[in-house]
Amino acid sequence: MNIFRLLGDMCHLVAIIILFLKIWRSKSCAGISGKSQVLFALVFTTRYLDLFTSFISVYNTVMKVVFLVLAYATVYLIYLRFRSTYNSESDSFRVEFLLVPVAGLSFLENYAFAPLEILWTFSIYLESVAILPQLFMITKTGEAESITTHYLFFLGLYRALYLANWVWRYHTEGFFDQIAVVSGVVQTIFYCDFFYLYFTKVLRGSGKMTLP
């Protein structure tokens, strides 16, 4: 554990809590991609199956359980509790175009051809593209509420901090997880355009982020 990793995990947690509370308090999931949230629930489910097979630390176990619970609770709010507020017509990203290549790649490029290992690899690849339906939705509607942009900011910051964590771990422990690092770099790149808009529009102005 290092400071980048801990801060990264905290940003990840903050992002998930921001989204959950936004939907819970406003009783609305307008502007939120349910598809991205289902993908994240799938990411956590396929990655954290090792909860049953290996114990790493109390921190690790608690965080995994919290992420899983919050991910499914968010999906529940969007698709069941506040379903009437869900903008399904704007959430039109075709997730099969992500799932099929990601599933295929996880069979081809993995550390070991074992069920849990392939599912872990699948989760890493899927996480790198899971936010795309949300970014697509914002591009399509041309705007995002500021609270939604704060959610995306913390999610992007989490990714950036994990990159710093890997640089740190490489130099201090010789640790290098190629699959995670390559996917992590790809994932962080997706946030660059958003970061630019966030700093130039949301933080300088107020209210919604509107696209040019």
Binding site: F67, F176, D177
Partner: peptide
């Protein structure tokens, strides 16, 4: 490369 086995990151 670290490979298969324990994945200690979240």
């Amino acid at each position: 490369a670290e490979g298969a086995g324990l994945h200690d990151e979240l």
